[in-house]
Amino acid sequence: MLHRSDALRGYLLMSPTLLIMLVGIVAPFVILLTMSLWTRSGFEFDTTLTLANYERTWNEPIFGALLKRSFWISGVATAATVILCYPMAYYVAFHVHRNKMMWIILMTLPFWTSYLLRVFAWKVILGYEGVVNSGLIALGFIDEPLGFLLYSQEAVIITLAHAWAAFAILPMYVSLEKIDKSLLEAATDLGDGPAARFLRVTLPLSMPGIIAACFLIFIPTTGDYITPALLGGPDGVMIGNFIQLQFGPANNWPMGATLAIILMLWIAAIAAVFLFVTRLAARRVA
């Protein structure tokens, strides 16, 4: 009796969250899944359930190519963000002793403005007559503007890496900050120089933060469509733009739903492999 009422109380306490999850996540997912099994016929949807859309994505190379490019771009952006932000998080965790909070707030300051604004700002910086090009011309390094800066994969990668930096710094800072400093001294005491100590103690112990940062950046950036739409040009189009196209101008909602589901499955698979590999690597390094 007691057990049942305990469980009941637990569900009661969770009920607002459960309700939101049910309405906000489970229901749309079921709708999406169902819709992905429909097909488009003219301006209407044919609601007979079929795997035709999945077959199409498998057979037509454009979908695979777009997926691959999306994973490539956001993978590079994720790696770049994590690698560039790790030293920042490391510095604040180990070398700043006063006003740590202020440093963290300062690092996140750029993210107080809207995402869209920041993307436009990069357009100004990277553009044909933008800050970088005109600066380089003024300094005499180049004669005419560098064309690859804007409307390219590189532009998308640079912008994504900057846009998501805060999401990389915070989890990595937290996991570095948690490391007991006497562990580092113990490693030194037992004969490790700075490099060996970093690889054998600091890096494995900060792995949870690195993994969290990778997920926090990789998952949303794969599906991002604002940055590639504004800065990507024809080479920088990603799967997110294509999904948006299906739901918008192309008016093929079932195909959009199918692509969204496939993207989700791929991300889940990549995340699982990534987790497995990092676990394995952590054991090796030790």
């Binding site: 007991d180 562990l183 113990a186 490693a187 037992l190 030790a286």
Partner: peptide, 24 residues
Amino acid sequence: PPHRREVNMVFQSYAIFPHLNVAD
């Protein structure tokens, strides 16, 4: 430097590496 000294220390907090087992 400390990592080259043939001197070892037992720390007050023991500083056992949490990501390694006893043998490691």
